[in-house]
Design a protein around this nucleic acid. Structure first.
Lengths: 204, 204
DNA sequence: TACTGTACATACCGGTTTGTATAGTCGGCG
DNA sequence: CGCCGACTATACAAACCGGTATGTACAGTA
């Protein structure tokens, strides 16, 4: 058995164990590729218990996305803590992603992956995914504002594209390089070098 | 019946019909979410015929990726034809992606989506996906060279991140805006404004 | 005429999917 | 003590998965 059938004193309860294994498997193998049977087995729990806690597989998927979002921001705040200037925070942002690749279990953005797998557009998971991405954009806009950009929203939008693109390419090549390139490009777009111009002449 | 059982005179053969429907369904609904039964039905063909032509579902997936790659480059060449300068070609690149969203059936990059769904790292599809992405990078590097960049490879890498990120975000929001932002950022990174400097001061 | 290639129809294989029904076991608490 | 909530074990349903076996119909060709 992978886990004790009966909750060890002080150990995590069934619901926590289920959510933890589901979160891991959904990210590592994909949502569709992971069956509820496997999740139940791996968490040392019966399917009945799983359904008593989460109602359906979709319910478990939603719980997984919520939990992942929380974990993401917790880890992220840790990376950004102690950054004084806006540029430092921008660097930390890319560095956070970079270290994520090094952690080993990197398989791209779990939210983007989920949104691809969740074909039904009305799936409640999509709202969580949108919120997550909007949160990142918002965070970047704060950095742009603090950096004195004239158009912070625009800068944030461009940085987020670099971040997102680097995540996609890093996932394909299993490399940290894309984040180095993305960081360099982002800093070059940072208007510190060209104050009041958002990084350069206005072109479209 | 969706299609005539027997090949109409001059119409596409069974293999072509199978590949066409499979390609459409794999992209629109996802690979795992599309069963061979559905593909056979939709193309007006029996499963036996499908297996006679493609051997297995994986074989069909590979054929789909190959076909999609060919179609992609064909359409792409059309967009780039008639562009004189390097900047025009760069603009056309983003414009091609933009018009793709407008076409209606946009659901992100089919190759990135496939690579997420094809969990097994040894799946032959991954090689096709890598080739596709490398082809784009190569195309961008050509543009960067023609534009007189000192480090064309670097510029190409950055542009591709913008392109890839815009595709991901556009897929989430079903909007053409990401490509506008990406194009603007790419042009700002273009060294035309700062010849010999690859778009600005060297920062890292 | 005889053969070959292509596609047909039908039925089946073992396995997996999500989800449920039923009955039993255990620990803690009033 | 009795009860309740959390959990287990087993079994099942109904659909679907990729893939195969058997046999037939028809067009073209040597």
């Amino acid at each position: 058995m992978a886990a004790p059938k009966r909750r060890a004193e002080g150990g995590p309860g069934a619901a926590d164990r289920i959510l933890a294994t589901a979160s891991a498997l959904f990210y590592e193998r994909g949502i569709r590729a992971t069956g509820v049977n496997t999740i139940a087995e791996q968490s040392g729990v019966t399917k009945v218990t799983l359904y008593a806690h989460f109602g359906s597989k979709d319910g478990l998927v939603v719980a997984h996305l919520r939990a992942r979002n929380q974990r993401w921001w917790a880890e992220f705040d840790g990376h950004l803590a102690g950054c004084a200037t806006a540029e430092e925070r921008l660097r930390a942002m890319f560095e956070a992603y970079r270290s994520w690749v090094l952690a080993g279990d990197f398989r791209g953005c779990g939210f983007v992956n989920a949104s691809i797998e969740l074909t039904a557009p009305e799936h409640p998971g999509h709202a969580i995914i949108s919120d997550h991405k909007e949160g990142i954009r918002c965070c970047l806009e704060g950095i742009a504002t603090d950096a004195g950009c004239r158009h912070p929203a625009k800068a944030a939008e461009e940085w987020r594209l670099l971040l997102e693109g680097a995540t996609a390419i890093a996932s394909l090549r299993h490399s940290t390089e894309p984040f180095d390139h993305a960081r360099q490009a982002a800093l070059r777009l940072l208007p510190t070098a060209h104050p009041g111009l958002d990084g350069g002449p206005e072109r479209s």
